[in-house]
């Protein structure tokens, strides 16, 4: 498969997505559509850092599922490079999707407890990259990626339950990076972590960006975290994108209900504590 080089890496055109649900009673014979996202247009360009914010249940995670090829939208098209992924055969789609690294929300539930860290990190290499990759090359790749995310090499022999929350999150980031993706998708990467560990992970994500310049798509409901990682912000409210722009502009002049509430709540907070940093 030859890839041309369009400006965007991911592009969504008029995507409407959701779930098929079974209503109660006699109506259960016909599944109905429950729409979670309506007319979403979005593009992620190379080396761009975007935060998708919105309150719980606004459809942020559903949007990620659509981008990751896990949920076919009811209508609209999802492009990764120039390929409409839901019109590709499964094998071809998987090849394209290796360009995306995904870091799920909960480090305590997202790692296979039966596998050692080294096997967790080998899986994407074996699945995606690269048949005929030499064993020694896989090993050196796994070692280098563990080092990159700031973990000691002895972690490779450990099981996830032997690791702290911060270390597990680093393993998840390493797993996403091991196949050298061009987009890194982070779903609430710090919500399950303590403040001190949260800061380590935010700094790690920024360091990785400085080093490899992948595009970053961050999903969060915490604006203070969005501000540390992203340049552009997209606000989802009532199933639609209601606000979009450079993060500093949106913070200084919020338009949507969510942003107005969030910004005023933070300002109140800061004023009450009279913080000066």
């Amino acid at each position: 498969m030859v890839m041309k080089n369009p400006e965007y890496i991911i592009k969504l055109e008029n995507v409407t997505a959701g779930y098929l649900i079974t209503p109660p009673g006699i109506r259960s014979l016909i599944k109905t559509r429950y729409i979670v996202l309506k007319n979403i247009n979005l593009s992620v360009n190379k080396s761009e850092r975007i935060a998708i914010v919105g309150s719980s249940g606004s459809g942020k995670t559903t949007l990620l599922k659509v981008i990751l090829g896990l949920l076919k939208p009811f209508s609209g098209r999802v492009f990764i490079y120039e390929y409409d992924i839901y019109r590709l055969p499964w094998r071809e789609r998987v090849k394209i999707l290796k360009k995306i690294g995904y870091v799920p929300q909960d480090p305590f539930k997202s790692l296979n407890p039966m596998l050692r860290v080294k096997d967790i990190l080998r899986e994407p290499l074996e699945a995606h990259v690269i048949r005929g990759y030499k064993e020694s090359k896989i090993e050196s790749k796994v070692k280098s990626i563990v080092k990159l995310v700031g973990l000691p090499e002895k972690v490779l022999e450990m099981y996830p339950e032997e690791l702290s929350g911060g270390m597990r999150q680093r393993v998840l980031i390493a797993r996403a990076l091991v196949s050298e993706p061009e987009v890194l998708i982070l779903d609430e990467p710090t919500s399950a972590l303590d403040v001190s560990v949260q800061a380590q992970i935010i700094n790690l994500i920024n360091d990785i960006y400085e080093q490899f310049k992948p595009a970053i798509l961050l999903v969060t409901h915490d604006l203070s975290i969005a501000q540390y990682i992203a340049d552009r912000i997209i606000v989802i409210e009532n199933k639609e994108i209601v606000e979009e722009g450079l993060i500093d502009n949106v913070l200084s002049n919020p338009q949507s209900h969510f942003m107005k509430m969030a910004v005023s709540s933070y300002k109140d907070n800061k004023n009450k504590l009279k913080l000066e940093f």
Binding site: A199, L223, S224, Y266, F277
Partner: peptide, 8 residues
């Protein structure tokens, strides 16, 4: 270590 909105 605490992120604060408006302080980058």
């Amino acid at each position: 270590t605490t992120p604060i909105l408006g302080v980058k």
